[in-house]
């Protein structure tokens, strides 16, 4: 299955990107070139396979070094509810395009 010019427009909108017609055409060809090699993947039978979202998944119980898997970080580590971040506004906004009175300025947001 291959992408259409409409797909390119929809995805560009979704990604907040814009392409002139020429580059949109070139992009369409390149993406379809990529999705050609993706086809072989779709044919694979993956019934009953659990998707792998984190590489640590695969480490479960593999190593003596991994005494306590929770400790190791295979499940979410939780931190104590403590405030320790000082006000760094000046440093944090040093590379901001537009700031006024400590606020980031953007073109009017209409709700």
């Amino acid at each position: 299955m291959s992408l259409s010019p409409q797909d390119i427009q929809r995805l560009a909108q979704l990604s907040r990107l814009q392409f002139d017609d020429a580059s949109a055409d070139r992009l369409l060809g390149q993406l379809n070139g990529f999705f050609d090699i993706v086809e072989q993947m779709r044919a694979v039978n993956t019934d009953g396979v659990v998707p792998m979202a984190h590489p640590v998944d695969a480490m479960q119980g593999l190593h003596q070094a991994i005494a306590d898997t929770d400790e190791l970080g295979m499940t979410l580590r939780l931190r104590e509810d403590v405030v320790s971040e000082p006000n760094q506004r000046e440093a944090n906004q040093r590379s901001a395009p537009a700031v006024e009175r400590g606020l980031f300025l953007v073109p009017k947001v209409i709700e």
């Binding site: 993706v38 993947m41 779709r42 694979v44 993956t46 396979v49 659990v50 998707p51 792998m52 979202a53 590489p55 998944d57 695969a58």
Partner: peptide, 15 residues
């Protein structure tokens, strides 16, 4: 069809 299938094959590769 794409992302989830890729995640599954990713586990098969690790296996």
């Amino acid at each position: 069809a794409y992302y989830l299938q890729a995640q599954k094959i990713r586990r098969m590769i690790a296996h």
